[in-house]
Structures are given as C-alpha cells and as structure tokens.
C-alpha cells in the first residue's frame, strides 16, 4: 500500500467529507461523487508538493472535481429533462420540504454548467469571480449561466407560484 504524506492524509481526512458533499451536489449520484473525489485526490497527490504551498489546496481539488464532472457529463447523457418534476398530484408546493425537493429535482435537470454555478454559488458560497476561476470562464458567463438556471426554475409552474409566494414584495 502506498504511503501518503502525513500532510496529505490530514487533508483528505479533514476535507474529504466536504469534497464528497460538494461532488454529490454536482452529480446527484453517490457512487459517481466518490469516483470523482477519489480521482481528483489521486491527481492532486501527484502535485501535492506544489499544492500544499497554495492558500487553499481544496480549491484546486474542487476545480478538478468540477472539470471532471463536466467532462464526464459530456460523454454521457443522464436523460434528465429540465422541469421534469410532475406538475399534478404530487407534493403540495406550499409544503417547505416538498418545495425543496422540487427545487432539487429541477436543479438536477439543468445543464451541467448551470448546475455547477448554482452549487458553487449557493452551496459553496463562492463569489462569481471564484466561480469563473473554477469553470475557467468569464464572470459574465457565470452570471449568464446563473440567469438561465433561474429562468428554468421560474418557468416551472409550481416553482413560479412558490417564487411569487416567497418573494412577495421583491421585484
């Protein structure tokens, strides 16, 4: 069995759970999330002596995870359709839990880059600048991807009603 450096083992132990949660948010698939994080960490270990000098090696690993996810998604379609959640006879949108579940499902049907932007912005709390770095694109592209994601969310009949309810008074 290969011996990893103590610093790297400490990093995996400390940040592994967060990386797995992040990968799961991106993929919605526990097995795929594990594969993504394992591969990203194995790659990161190859250049750990350089990464350890960075302010946040985790940001680098996260970037690998996102790029792999985008690459893998290009090669296989999930068949998910945006807004594929049933419109009738399902959870009452006034129920908070059902509402979150509906949002979860609609986000799951978004194109991978749009979903990545939402996860990075609202789960990882990154700024648009930081998201642009991760996705290797311009900040304007990040805003555009987010806008299109929200357009899809707002078009969903049940979410449109939910949005109106929640955003009362907002423009």
């Amino acid at each position: 069995m290969a011996g990893l450096t103590p610093e790297f083992e400490a990093f995996v132990t400390a940040r592994g759970p967060a990386l797995l949660r992040f990968a799961f948010m991106l993929t919605r698939d526990a097995g795929l999330a594990e594969d993504l994080v394992q591969e990203a960490l194995i790659r990161a270990y190859g250049r750990w002596s350089q990464l350890v000098r960075l302010d946040s090696p985790e940001a680098y690993v996260r970037r690998i995870v996102v790029n792999q996810m985008l690459s893998w998604r290009r090669r296989r379609s999930t068949g998910e359709v945006p807004g594929s959640a049933p419109e009738h006879g399902t959870p009452d949108a006034t129920d908070a839990l059902a509402e979150r579940d509906l949002v979860w499902r609609v986000i799951g049907g978004l194109p991978a880059r749009q979903r990545a932007v939402l996860v990075l912005r609202y789960y990882e709390a990154l700024t648009d600048r930081e998201i642009a770095d991760v996705l290797d694109c311009a900040e304007g592209t990040v805003r555009s991807l987010a806008a299109r994601a929200f357009e899809t969310l707002r078009r969903h009949p049940q979410l449109a009603r939910s949005g109106e309810r929640v955003t009362t008074g907002e423009n």
Binding site: R21, A23, E99, R100, V103, W104, Y123, L153, S162, G163
Partner: peptide, 26 residues
C-alpha cells in the same frame, strides 16, 4: 437574495445528508 435563491440554497443544504460517507475515502 430573492426567494428562489433562498430556496436553491436551502434545497442544496437539505440534501447534503444524502452525500456518501467519507469512511473509505482515504
């Protein structure tokens, strides 16, 4: 943050418990 943004954040956070455990990661 508007209502949908809040919903997105809450939805993501609410589902993190489904993420795989890190027991075998190392």
């Amino acid at each position: 943050m508007d209502g949908l943004e809040t919903l997105v954040r809450e939805s993501l956070t609410a589902h993190e418990e489904r993420a795989p455990e890190a027991d075998g990661l190392l």
